[in-house]
Design a protein around this nucleic acid. Structure first.
Lengths: 102, 102
DNA sequence: TCAATATATTAGTGTATACTTACGTTAGTG
DNA sequence: CACTAACGTAAGTATACACTAATATATTGA
């Protein structure tokens, strides 16, 4: 399982979230991903690596192309973070609000 | 509503996630939050500010103390990110895996 | 009002990050 | 084999970040 450090770090960058946005409707080669983005292609390559390390995307080779698509593994880790963590938050929040009133 | 930049950035730091961990079972004054952490109290103050800007925590004053507790607003934004975004990811993932096999 | 408590803010610093340009690598094509 | 296409990698740089030490602010009590 991926650690949350990498996942949240990967998601903290807007350009990387743009990358995810571009491939959310289906896999895409690296060049095409870079087309829509305001940074150079090498920069996108570096972002892709970070996203891949976080297991948020997957790589598949096809000739000279590299097709990138979403990887649900990192997502699963995030989901666990929610289920295991924030379920408590919601219930505890009430106490906080209630004691805040006079 | 909060933007995801601030939220993911806030969550990308392990110390800040430690802060959240410490207050997830109930609000706590800043000093007590800092006790368990390996950084100085001013550093914790700075982290608290970032978490507060991201609307992940709330502040309430009580005398000279400042009590911090979880704030579900940032969390709601994150939840939307999931529901609105990753529901697509899961279904699209199948296509990717299937085309990967020979 | 003076001092103590609890905390935030500022200034300064080493390190990490995101970017660009230049170069290297791998797979197909004549 | 040379050439092109589609990438990744390396080196260098400006900026952002997290941290500490010192200072400032606000609240309470003697």
């Amino acid at each position: 399982m991926q650690n949350l450090d990498n996942i949240f770090f990967a998601l903290s960058d807007p350009t990387r979230r743009d990358v995810l946005e571009r491939i959310r409707n289906g896999p895409m080669p690296a060049g095409k991903i870079a087309e829509g983005l305001p940074v150079t292609r090498p920069a996108v390559s570096q972002h892709l690596r970070i996203l891949k390390d976080a297991e948020l995307i997957q790589e598949r080779r096809e000739g000279t192309k590299r097709i990138y698509g979403l990887n649900p593994l990192g997502l699963e880790a995030l989901k666990e973070f929610f289920d295991d963590y924030w379920s408590v938050a919601m219930t505890r929040f009430k106490d906080f609000v209630e004691t805040e009133e006079p």
